[in-house]
Amino acid sequence: MQTDKAVSVSKLSRHFGKFIAVDEISFEVDKGEIFGFLGANGAGKTTAIKMLCGLLKPTSGEATVAGFSINSDTSKIKKNIGYMSQKFSLYDDLTVKENIEFYGGIYGLSREKISDKTDQLISELNLDKMKNSLTRSLPLGWKQRLALSTSLLHDPSIIFLDEPTGGVDPISRRNFWRIIYEIASRGKTVFVTTHYMDEAEYCNRVSIMHKGKIIELGTPTGLKQKYNKTTMQDIFISIIGQN
């Protein structure tokens, strides 16, 4: 399957015994798009994302991520995607510098490259004074930017964000999204999963998953018009409530 889409999913399914976690989903995400992947707990989002990241084989169907097949090219996919979650990405007991070096090593960068990238990131993030402090002592907003930067160390073409700004104060959240828009404008694709409907509002398009299927997909403004609602929260509740 050849495609210039960042993500292209065709009739993708995953069964666990008799349970159908993901049921023939199809969708595409453009390069440089910010795509929201929404759904209630247990809707099948995590299973779908594990497949897209090459961590779980599908039962049937096909998808390409950054041009590589999730059936046959999973190692290439892993080199071309980044992952950031506000909760799990950083080691609190390592210093800022050590975290960057650690992730550089995980992503297989050379020693020189790691050292260059570390200096570059620390200066970009204005973390010079804090570089030898334990990561736990950083304010939440900075931690989040550090987590984002480390997930971009290997220059992936797609980045997966898992509830990136939950619990963060609104000012840090808006600053964070400003950076995300900047990253997307450079052609990187941003794939967001979240329960935070506030975060969904920042996406170019959103999909809503329910019982293994994608039951709605569109722009936030388009969906608001279609359902005659003013917030993504109301749309989500009305769609899931109907089903």
Binding site: A40, I237, I240
Partner: peptide, 8 residues
Amino acid sequence: TTGVDPVS
């Protein structure tokens, strides 16, 4: 309700 989906 932190971490709980919008319907719940």
